[in-house]
């Protein structure tokens, strides 16, 4: 990881660690004037490194919009998103692209694979975009495929895989650049419960073993319950936040501080 990308803002004023993602007063409005629709309304949230956070809500609640804003795929109407203490609105063009490329990994409900490319090509796409050398990107992609237990499918065409395998390929793609944060948008939404469980195990395994911050957008309560924290969204507003018991012991201070801010 290039260190020059983002310098963590100093947290000298308090002992609180700098949140890896922090949103303040975030609002997003679609359309203008009479047809305006407020998808998000004054959202405050802190997510710390190594946490797993579920954003729960019904469809149309604004949960996906929130994820897109946190992943810097979209610009808020008002409010700020800070990544490791750095205001994202100050990041433009190249820096923003590099940040997404190096810090974030994405897992989508619809997989979004390039169907005609091989599994390997799909996995190494972020590295290709990130200008990693040909030889090392192949090595890294195979390593990522090994983690999701699909190394033997590297040369297969992406279309020829089952849904569960596709999602594992997507996870491999999400972790190939060794990201700090993985955004997962309904990762089990298109899968049966059996294969869904495998995916969930994989994601939480990465969270526990590698300390990857996991942000899962879902409407599935069971999946959400597996996360350290559950953020519930209704009509663009956070209605409640809960913590699972194990999480409390793990990251007590961090979450307490975060919650204070979030009210």
């Amino acid at each position: 990881m290039k260190q020059s990308l983002i310098k963590p803002a100093s947290a000298s004023r308090s002992s609180e660690p700098v949140p890896i993602v922090e949103v303040k007063g975030l609002s997003k409005t679609y359309g203008k004037k009479s047809t305006a629709f407020k998808a998000l309304d004054d959202i405050n949230l802190k997510i710390f490194s190594g946490e797993s956070v579920a954003i729960i809500g019904k469809s149309g609640s604004g949960k996906s919009t929130l994820m897109h804003l946190m992943a810097l795929l979209d610009n808020p109407t008002s409010g700020t998103v800070k990544i490791m203490g750095v205001n994202a609105s100050k990041l433009k063009g190249k820096k923003l692209n590099r940040l997404r490329n190096k810090y974030f990994g994405f897992v989508f409900q619809q997989f979004f694979m390039n169907p005609n490319d091989s599994v390997l090509e799909n996995v190494l796409l972020p590295l290709k975009i990130g200008k990693v050398k040909r030889f090392s990107r192949k090595k890294l992609a195979l390593k990522a495929l090994d983690i999701v237990d699909l190394e033997n499918k590297a040369k297969n065409k992406a279309t020829n895989l089952s849904g569960g395998q596709k999602q594992r390929v997507c996870i491999a793609r999400a972790i190939v650049n060794n990201p700090k944060v993985i955004f997962a948008d309904e990762p089990t939404g298109n899968l049966d419960s059996g294969t869904g469980k495998k995916i969930v195990d994989l994601l939480f395994g990465l969270n526990k073993k590698r300390g990857v911050t996991l942000i899962i957008v879902t409407h599935d309560e069971d999946l959400a319950a597996l996360c350290d924290r559950q953020v519930r969204i209704v009509d663009g507003k956070i209605t409640s936040e809960t913590k699972t018991r194990q999480a409390r012991t793990l990251k007590t201070t961090a979450i307490r501080e975060g919650r204070k801010e979030d009210r």
């Binding site: 992943a71 795929l73 063009g93 190249k94 923003l96 692209n97 590099r98 940040l99 997404r100 490329n101 190096k102 994405f106 979004f112 390039n114 796409l125 972020p126 975009i129 990130g130």
Partner: peptide
């Protein structure tokens, strides 16, 4: 996808 993954 390319854009999400940081392609300029």
């Amino acid at each position: 996808l390319d854009k999400a993954l940081g392609m300029s």
